Simulated assay, not measured.
Amino acid sequence: MLSISDFSEMCCLSPQTLRFYHSEGLLVPAAVDEQTGYRSYTFDQIERAMLITVLRGTGMSVKLVRRALDEPDTANALLQQHTLEMQRQREAQDEAIRDARELLTSWPEARVHHVPEMTVVSKLVPGPSAGPDEYDWDQADTAMSATVREVIETVRSCGAVVSGTPWRAPAIETVEQKTRNLTTTGPHWLVKVPVTANEDTLAALPGDVEVQTFEARTELSIFVPGRSSMAKYGSALSRLIAHPLDDAFIDFSRIRQVLHDDGVETAVAICRLDEADVAG
């Protein structure tokens, strides 16, 4: 039998770690003295300790390691599942590092630019199944990307050409959309895909999409790298609001978010005060 001290040295596991593994049922001593509480181990347990160390080194939780050891037939599948999760985490960390580097190097600045008139194909994005007190931006982005792909495939199959970067806009173009937009299930967004096509091609598009004319306008926009989040969205709005404009104001009812490959550009229409007076 090996004392906990000797077993600790042989396995390169601290006594504290061995006590923790014992409490978690991961590595139970061969014997525990009832009077002193001293733990003793056998040489046979060194192999299990080594395997635990290897699996824990992959980042697997104690619970997952215990399951892999208790159910050897599922160990490879559990390791594969854990590997995929670790890859997703590393990809997210790499993306966060790129975003941080870009933000620290050059903080995004708002810019004024002209957007020409264009023909767009619009489609509602299915609303996320978020709870009443949260909005899942990752889930929304996944649904958004899927809808953009669907629209692009649809227009191309009908012979139209995608002529610009897609964007999303709040689903508030009709009374029904405005009502449903206020619910947790939505839908909350519309995707818009700029296209070039003749009238016959546009007429051949299916009924679940709508052909619209996006009117030319001057915009104030700001690009924020990386995935969407409420914090990034709020930061973009804050920068847009703070940007000085001469004899003009921004119209948030005509907000859109251009979906670039490396981030999101939030844009709002600029209205000149003299134009607003004429319209009124």
Rank of each mutant, 00 (worst) to 15 (best):
T58W: 12
S14A: 13
L51E: 15
L51I: 13
A30D: 14
Q35R: 08
L26D: 02
E34Q: 03
L55M: 15
T42N: 12
G25R: 04
L51A: 06
E47D: 07
E34V: 08
S23T: 10
L27F: 09
R56G: 14
L13W: 00
L13P: 01
R56T: 00
Q35T: 07
M50A: 14
R19K: 13
G25I: 11
I46G: 00
Q16C: 04
V32Q: 05
L18N: 00
Y38I: 04
L27A: 04
Q16F: 02
L18S: 06
T53D: 15
T53V: 06
V28R: 09
G57A: 01
Q16W: 04
T17F: 07
T53S: 15
Q16M: 11
V32F: 01
G25A: 12
G57M: 06
A30F: 10
L27P: 15
R39F: 02
S14C: 10
L27C: 11
Q35I: 13
D44V: 13
M50L: 14
R56N: 05
T17P: 06
F43S: 05
G25L: 10
L51V: 14
Y41R: 04
S40Q: 13
P15E: 07
T42H: 08
Y21D: 03
R56I: 02
L55A: 08
L27M: 12
Y41Q: 02
G57P: 11
L51D: 05
E47W: 05
E24I: 03
V54K: 13
L13H: 01
P15N: 05
L26Y: 06
S23D: 08
R19T: 09
I46E: 05
L27Y: 05
R48W: 02
V32E: 09
T42D: 12
G25Y: 04
S14W: 06
D44Q: 14
F20G: 00
R48D: 09
L13N: 01
R39H: 10
L55Q: 11
A31N: 10
L55D: 09
T17A: 14
Q45A: 08
I46Q: 12
C12S: 14
T17G: 01
A49I: 07
E34Y: 06
Q45V: 11
T36V: 12
L18K: 00
Y21S: 05
S40C: 03
T17D: 02
I46D: 00
I52E: 00
Q45E: 08
F20N: 07
R39D: 01
E34I: 11
S14H: 04
S40T: 07
A49T: 08
M50I: 04
I46L: 15
C12F: 13
T58L: 15
M50T: 11
L27D: 12
A30Y: 13
S23Q: 15
Q16G: 03
V32P: 03
E34N: 06
F20M: 08
T58D: 07
E47C: 04
A30L: 14
V54T: 15
F43A: 07
T53Q: 10
E47V: 06
R19I: 06
T53L: 09
A30R: 13
T58V: 12
T36M: 05
D44A: 15
T17L: 13
L27I: 10
R56P: 00
T58M: 11
Y41E: 11
L27V: 10
S40N: 02
Y41H: 04
P15F: 10
S14D: 08
F20C: 04
V28D: 05
D33F: 11
